[in-house]
Amino acid sequence: MVSNPYLPKLAKIESIKDEAPETKTFKIKILDEKIRDSFNFSPGQFIELTVFGYGEAPFSITSSPMVHENFSITVRKMGNVTKGLFRLREGDFVGVRGPFGRGWPLEKMKENDVLVIAGGIGLAPLKPLIEYIILHRKMYNNVKLFYGAKTPKDIIYKDMFDEWRKYIDVELTVDFAEKDWSGHSGPVTVLFKNFQPSSDNIYSVQCGPPIMMHFVTRQLSSIGLPPEKIYFSLERNMKCGMGFCGKCMTGGRYVCKEGPVFNYSEVKNFLETPV
């Protein structure tokens, strides 16, 4: 019997954590032990999550790639699948397919500076990368996170930053500052104000709303990063994850299979402009 790649593996929600308004992190455990043990992913990859009766949608894996017992996704309530997911409680069933796609260029970035730029919930696919870098800290040079959110309330993984700051630089900004906010305010590009890459050996990785990626990419190019060192994760309507359904195709490339991580030099060759 051939295994059917459309059939989700049954899994249970182990825990649910509030991150921000309408945003939660779900820790998910695949029931079958064998499948669970063979569930390996690379930071930046995604899964297709089923909420039975509501459908299936793609979510980036946000937990550390070193953990095999379970994995996490961070979800903002948006469409029907996330609405259904938000109705579920700990112990409820979901379905999982994947992991799918191509993640961040871990190998290429070694021995280089890494600039991580995230907007809003776009930090989700970058969290496993940051955790991977921290675990292999000696292999990477200067590592910096620029993170922007709409308001201080919308910042996700609030409890992680202190831990991360022990290993990497973290700078935050919010579009709309509130009274008790003492940090930067404005779009994430304000964090570039005093930033100059210390050497040519620098990679940047980013994920956020298309408009953010557009301006950040312009900024990065203007400070001299070559296109092949600017990476981003694209969001598309990825229904099957295997390059069959055609919905995520952008400029002839399947974002689900060949992405979702692309570098700017690849994207420049797309006929359609995705960022």
Partner: peptide, 10 residues
């Protein structure tokens, strides 16, 4: 042509 969409029907 073979593009498709996937939905759940309760």
């Amino acid at each position: 042509c073979r593009c498709f969409t996937i939905t759940d029907e309760p």
